[in-house]
């Protein structure tokens, strides 16, 4: 329902930011997310940044589930 794509902020001027989708650069609306910094990973939807991505959280989720799978593996 809402296609959101990860990208990295590479330039900010006023309410417009330039983001890099992994090689493709595009200007997007940066008004909705306060104190953006260059280098932040963000989610872009319909040409606007709607949230920052917390990379640490991403890693922890993956670790949590890897351990769950290990623990259950023992039970099979």
């Amino acid at each position: 329902m809402c296609l959101g794509v990860p990208a990295r902020v590479i330039k900010i001027n006023g309410d417009i930011a330039t983001v890099d989708y992994g090689g493709i650069m595009k200007d997007v609306d940066a008004f909705l997310v306060p104190n953006l910094k260059v280098g932040d990973y963000v989610i872009v939807h319909a040409g606007a940044i709607i949230a920052k991505i917390n990379e640490k959280e991403a890693m922890e989720m993956m670790k949590a589930w890897s351990s769950i799978m290990e623990e259950l593996k023992g039970e099979i």
Binding site: G4, F31, L32, V33, I43, A51, I53, N54, E57, A58
Partner: peptide, 17 residues
């Protein structure tokens, strides 16, 4: 599960606007 992007309160600025 989408903790890398979603927080409990969400984007307060976007909600306000």
């Amino acid at each position: 599960e989408y903790g890398r992007v979603v927080t409990w309160d969400g984007n307060l600025r976007a909600q306000e606007i």
